[in-house]
């Protein structure tokens, strides 16, 4: 059954801009080289300011999403406030490490805005070791290819529209080189004014 991390395929990317973040993913669900579905988005809205991308084994993506949804909703009800992105990131990390010796086969990416409008991104491995870089985070089967494109095209303090354009270009450049990702994509652009969702136009082969 080879590697559970690459069995279903899929790639997620998030980039920081000036008071904005963008998070994107492809929509393919496969079984090794066979494409099973082309409508399997891997990004979830946890609250109006926090988005959560998961690349890896589809069953674990779904389970982990439900598990975290439970905790985020409970937090919202108990404290009557939205969970800030850095708190959500830590929650994901501890949730993953709880299963240190039988981990979920998924790599999360978190994107969101703080109350003061400053952007937040983080990524972690399947047992919750976190990085919070200044530029971009990538996960999934196309991660290596997307990283290369991002290193070339990412710039500091991009405006929302430019950020979306660059991130879209980088994702497609990477995903088109990866047989396990592609078949459509979704992007969420998060700014202090609100969130916009985009369906990405891309090669369907």
């Amino acid at each position: 059954m080879s590697n559970p991390f690459t069995l279903n395929g899929g790639t997620v990317l998030s980039m920081k801009g000036k008071n904005c973040v963008v998070i994107l993913c492809d929509t393919r669900l496969g079984s090794q080289y066979e494409t099973v579905s082309t409508s399997f988005p891997k990004i979830f809205k946890m609250n109006p300011r926090v988005f959560f991308g998961l690349a890896g084994l589809a069953s674990d993506v779904i389970t982990l999403h439900h598990k975290l949804r439970f905790h985020v909703n409970l937090f919202q009800l108990k404290q009557e406030r939205s969970m800030p992105p850095h708190v959500f990131s830590k929650l994901v990390s501890t949730t993953l490490y709880e299963k240190r010796f039988g981990s979920f086969f998924a790599q999360p990416i978190i994107a969101g805005l703080h109350d003061d409008g400053s952007p937040f991104i983080s990524s972690m491995d399947s047992i919750g070791a976190t990085t919070e870089p200044e530029d971009f985070v990538v996960a999934g089967t196309g991660a290596d290819y997307v990283t290369g494109a991002c290193e070339k095209y990412w710039e500091k303090d991009m405006e929302p529209r430019q950020l979306l354009k660059v991130a879209d270009k980088c994702l497609q450049a990477g995903v088109n080189r990866d047989a396990f990702s592609g078949w459509g994509g979704v992007a969420y652009l998060i700014t202090p004014e609100g969130v916009e969702k985009f369906d990405l136009k891309m090669r369907q082969d």
Partner: peptide, 15 residues
């Protein structure tokens, strides 16, 4: 604190 990475708010401690 360990779980969420921030100090516990006083309302949560009281609850």
């Amino acid at each position: 604190r360990v779980r969420f990475g921030e100090e516990c708010p006083v309302s949560e401690v009281s609850r």
